[in-house]
Simulated scan of single mutants.
Amino acid sequence: MSMSLEFDEVTKKRDQFILSLPGQVIEKGEILGVIGNNGAGKSTMIQLVLGLIRPTSGNIYRHTDQGAAMSMQEWKQTVGFVFDDLSVYDDMHALKLSSFLSEVYSGWDDMYFFSLLDQFDVDKKKKVKTYSRGMRMKTGIAVALAHHPEVLVLDEPTSGLDTKSRKQMIALLNEENKKRGTTIIFSSHILDDMEQLATTIWLMEKGEILAHGPVDKMRENHAVAADGTIHKKKPEEEEGLKQATLEDLHDYYLGGGM
């Protein structure tokens, strides 16, 4: 399997905080869920990936379907990203927004963009600044997907959405991954969403990855006892144990349960 991203001894220092990503690889087609409490380094990692900030040390190697990206500009043509702030587009309605972004992305797909807005029930005649937080997030997802990215980077993509919209969003992201092989990197505090979407996870705390791996294997290797305690499971330990959920893994690694 080919890579989307490789972190070579990457660190980022901000005042007293240090993010450390030694030797991590994100494979093409992977759906990586990043779990961590506030201050864990999730947003710093995403900013590093997108080139918004530079590592203090180490290198990030970015790849496209054609191989190693020759420049950040080339790589960004293959990337969609979503934050819950669309203020840069505040005075645009959907037609103007699409016209503007078609000049930014060579693969911009007008029809797909407007079909996503219709799917999300976004009013295309209103300016972005009039949208609710949920509508802004839906528009952000449509913007991120409309040029058919190879990599999708999402910071709390279901934040501010109601239950119906969250399910709709998860189904869409799963479809993008299965149909196009899109690599997805996302952070979320909503572990139920993570459970339905992520194929692999990073559990982060204070700038370090405490545990990582395929979701199924991580769950299989941890268990919840009858008294509610969570622990790593040995192969011979089966009776009376319940397989761990992502919430259990969060509590074990990030909730002081180790």
Results as ranks from 00 to 15, higher is better:
residue 215 V to C: 01
residue 92 M to R: 09
residue 221 N to G: 15
residue 139 T to P: 00
residue 65 D to P: 05
residue 56 T to A: 10
residue 203 L to V: 06
residue 43 S to G: 04
residue 108 W to G: 10
residue 107 G to H: 07
residue 79 V to E: 09
residue 134 G to C: 00
residue 182 T to V: 10
residue 65 D to C: 13
residue 163 T to W: 00
residue 32 L to S: 14
residue 89 Y to V: 00
residue 92 M to T: 02
residue 25 V to E: 05
residue 76 K to T: 07
residue 100 F to K: 11
residue 137 M to N: 01
residue 245 T to V: 11
residue 164 K to V: 04
residue 249 L to I: 15
residue 242 K to R: 15
residue 109 D to P: 06
residue 256 G to T: 06
residue 143 V to C: 04
residue 191 L to Q: 13
residue 243 Q to M: 15
residue 66 Q to V: 15
residue 124 K to A: 00
residue 228 G to C: 03
residue 177 N to H: 13
residue 230 I to Q: 12
residue 203 L to G: 09
residue 136 R to M: 03
residue 51 G to L: 08
residue 200 T to W: 04
residue 225 A to P: 02
residue 39 G to M: 07
residue 180 R to H: 09
residue 77 Q to I: 13
residue 77 Q to E: 12
residue 200 T to R: 07
residue 31 I to K: 07
residue 149 P to K: 14
residue 68 A to W: 10
residue 171 A to Q: 04
residue 109 D to W: 08
residue 186 F to S: 05
residue 11 T to V: 08
residue 189 H to C: 00
residue 183 T to Y: 02
residue 63 H to F: 14
residue 48 L to I: 01
residue 66 Q to P: 04
residue 61 Y to R: 11
residue 92 M to W: 01
residue 251 D to V: 12
residue 71 S to W: 04
residue 78 T to L: 01
residue 156 E to S: 09
residue 92 M to H: 01
residue 136 R to N: 02
